[in-house]
């Protein structure tokens, strides 16, 4: 939507398809990596399976998921720009290819710069701070 795509379905489908495998594989690895000691603590306190999940496993995997989400969103953005270039009627990818097709060199550079700045800004101003916030306890541990 940020990139001006006129239909909501393509970006949602593209983002889902691009991020699902990365998030799923990281989720599985994160669950395996949850410290066994936390499970010993959970059992010694008589936690139910649902309580184990809520209080011990889910908070423990947040740092892994935050890192994976950052990577996945980066990939999804690149893919959606390519998708816009070939199958949309708006957005950075569309305008970049449109400018190229009509030999409008300044337009190509302008849209390329917009794309680069948007991706860096998204990563540095939004995704990275979220990752740092969610992994604070893990970094300082």
């Amino acid at each position: 939507m940020v990139f001006g795509v006129t239909s909501r379905k393509p970006p949602i489908l593209v983002v889902t398809a691009a991020t699902y495998p990365i998030l799923l594989s990281n989720l599985l690895a994160a669950v395996r990596a949850v410290d066994d000691q936390y499970m010993i603590l959970a059992r010694s306190l008589g936690a139910t399976k649902l309580q184990e999940l809520t209080y011990f496993i889910l908070p423990g995997i947040v740092p892994y998921l935050a890192g994976a989400s950052r990577a996945a969103i980066g990939i999804a953005l690149r893919i959606s720009v390519v998708a816009e270039a070939f199958g949309a009627s708006g957005g950075v990818g569309y305008w970049l290819v449109y400018s190229y097709d009509y030999g409008y060199r300044e337009g190509v550079f302008a849209w390329a710069w917009i794309l680069i700045i948007l991706m860096i800004a998204l990563d540095l101003l939004i995704l990275k701070p979220i990752e740092r916030w969610s992994t604070k306890w893990k970094l300082e541990k």
Partner: peptide, 26 residues
């Protein structure tokens, strides 16, 4: 009440939060 040999505290919770969670689960 069992105190294991290895200190096991949840790093994402404060000390108070850890203690209250133990009480809540019991």
């Amino acid at each position: 009440g069992y105190v294991p040999q290895e200190v096991i505290l949840l790093p994402w919770r404060t000390l108070r939060g850890n203690i209250l969670l133990a009480a809540k689960l019991r």
